[in-house]
Design a protein around this nucleic acid. Sequence first.
DNA 1: AAGTTGCATTGATAAATATCAAAGGGCTAC
DNA 2: GTAGCCCTTTGATATTTATCAATGCAACTT
Lengths: 252, 252
Amino acid sequence: MHANVKHNVVPLITPGLKVACSQCNLRELCLPFGLSDEDMARLDNLIGGGRKLKRGQHLYRAGEAFESIFAVKAGFFKTDVLTEDGRDQVTGFQMAGEILGMDGISTEVHTCNAVALEDSEVCLIPFTELEMLSSEIHSLQHHLHKVMSREIVRDHGVMMLLGTMRAEERLAAFLLNLSQRFNARGYSPAEFHLRMTREEIGSYLGLKLETVSRAFSRFQDEGLISVQQKHIRILDIPRLKTLLTPADGRLG
Amino acid sequence: MHANVKHNVVPLITPGLKVACSQCNLRELCLPFGLSDEDMARLDNLIGGGRKLKRGQHLYRAGEAFESIFAVKAGFFKTDVLTEDGRDQVTGFQMAGEILGMDGISTEVHTCNAVALEDSEVCLIPFTELEMLSSEIHSLQHHLHKVMSREIVRDHGVMMLLGTMRAEERLAAFLLNLSQRFNARGYSPAEFHLRMTREEIGSYLGLKLETVSRAFSRFQDEGLISVQQKHIRILDIPRLKTLLTPADGRLG
DNA sequence: AAGTTGCATTGATAAATATCAAAGGGCTAC
DNA sequence: GTAGCCCTTTGATATTTATCAATGCAACTT
């Protein structure tokens, strides 16, 4: 619980100042391994500084010209797509070290909205300049390709979730995914605050908010988790995982 | 109807021989505009020749080492993801000019299966070499990024479909998407053969095959389309489109 | 040409999730 | 500190889609 509270208070990072990639504690998440000092300096030079956002602020909106991708330095975001007829699909939740904005590369226009779900901070990475530099630094180029490919693979996972899973399976997968990502960042995998509403979870999972709420309640009744509003505590990770493997569940 | 029959017979392309990109009639789909003759020659040199696949053959399988991406020269493919517990999600259908295999870049291992749904032919594009060349030809590099970004945007569209649409809306969106893609390739947008089974359509759309079949039947009863097994004829494209915009439908 | 084998259609019923409705709780902003 | 608002929970009912089952159709094989 303590660890995650960090996300809810003012970031400790030097306010308003550009933090060099070489000094950033997220560099293992954002950058390729083994950059030389010189290449790192060139990259530092490329990054267009940081930008802070208050909760609820848009990082970019669908329809805006695409110029940069963004690395989340601190905080929490959602991306969503809106259609003319009012459909709204949350396509992802992004946390520290993850990259936002790659949807805009194909048409030079952003195709989704990115909104800060808590006070957050990002690095601006001007894309044309990133392409120029990556044509000179092979490991940087390859890393960019990996990041984009990873996003494609992640999207396939979401399709699997939406296409084949039932409500409780989707929610279990969602919680386990968050748990694993918090864990990878040094936070507790068992206890965290949700930054998004039930409705946003539901949009992401293809469910109505009431269905999400009921699934939370049932998980709690079964002793899998404890829920208090946005505060989640996972009590039995192994059993939560078995919800995702119905075949094994039947056999075991 | 005639135009599409081409896909069902032996390709007219010189059998077994490497066709240069510069000579390929799909180059507008695969390649950036305005490559110089010299750059085109270097690209021709890079492409590792073609590969023919019979219907049902795998182009690659999840778990195999990633080495190349593939451009569909002729034919029709599906990609799908399998999980240990037996879930199977079709993540896409690919036709001439589209790129396959980008999921493998992030881990150097393919994460899905690609299967030919009819006798097909692809170009092999060794990825490491493509990266090397693209660091020297800026427009090629940028084109690659656009192609990957387009895949991300497409995936977001599928999420929207799976997350917010009902069965008939999903099927209408699917048919209109196929229609538009056939049209872009010079085939009839109104009449075509489905290369996939009802079960594969259902997997892609997050529906059971019976639901797909019933939706087809209802569209036919309403005079929107005519269905005879895999032969589809769209009779009323505008009305099919209104199925996707319930808000407009109510207003008009 | 007939048999075999998927594939597709259709019907009846069951299960899952959405919708409608109401009330309670906690956070925010004043 | 408190009022208001949004978020969440929970219940009753409706709708959608899945499941189970049986038949029909068409292409491919022999």
